[in-house]
Amino acid sequence: MIYNAEDWARLRNAVFAVSLVAWVVILLEPRASACCAVNAAGVSWTVLLAAHPPASLAGNWALMLIAMMAPMLVAPIYHIRISSFARRRARSTMLFAAGYGTVWMVAGIVIVAVELIAAWRMPGSYLPATIVGLTAVLWQASPFKQRCLNRCHSHRPLAAFGFAADLDVFRFGLEQGLWCTASCWAAMLFPMLLPEAHFTAMAAVAILMFCERLDPPREPRWRWRGFGTAARSLSLRLRGPQRDPAPLTAVS
């Protein structure tokens, strides 16, 4: 409700730090990332499933989500913080994260299953990644994607007292998770299907998804989107502070 730049910066830094830790874990132990964990060359489906137990896949998927998605949650978490009583902020944030994570974990069942099937049927092939990559490019430019992004920007009023407040932030997490999943599913699937260069692809997709959230909501229509606001912001920073125009002088 009342925006405070310092409070925003503190929250942003904390969320980015959480994301950074997840990235470091993935970088140091690539097999800890869901997108790098499947190796199915020449094995049967049964052996493949035995080599990748569901708990391990779920943990890896969760780590990948934290690394890639956390930076996009600064705005909704800030909305929760300024809409909640101070003593409830941590609890509300946790409930929001639980709702948001639930949707992505359910979506992860489908996404990881597609990854496993692709790795089993076409090990080492770029074909699945190419198909999904082209789908992701098409989805990225579509009006349906814009509708999802617009919904991600929507932060509705939240109840403040009692169980209603808990339920409201959990529902808010579910809603954000739903529209975020609808917006990012193709981009998230793409790096997981690549036979190599997973980390680079993950980083590129994470940057794209973060930058597209910086763009304001727009009318849904076909257009390229993703780096408009980020490019303008970077350009302004690189050019530095601009001089004021010359003052007007009286002409006699």
Partner: peptide, 15 residues
Amino acid sequence: LPKEAELLGTNSGEL
């Protein structure tokens, strides 16, 4: 400058 804002109370729903 104002420091962090803090919620003191709300109504129960849409009006």
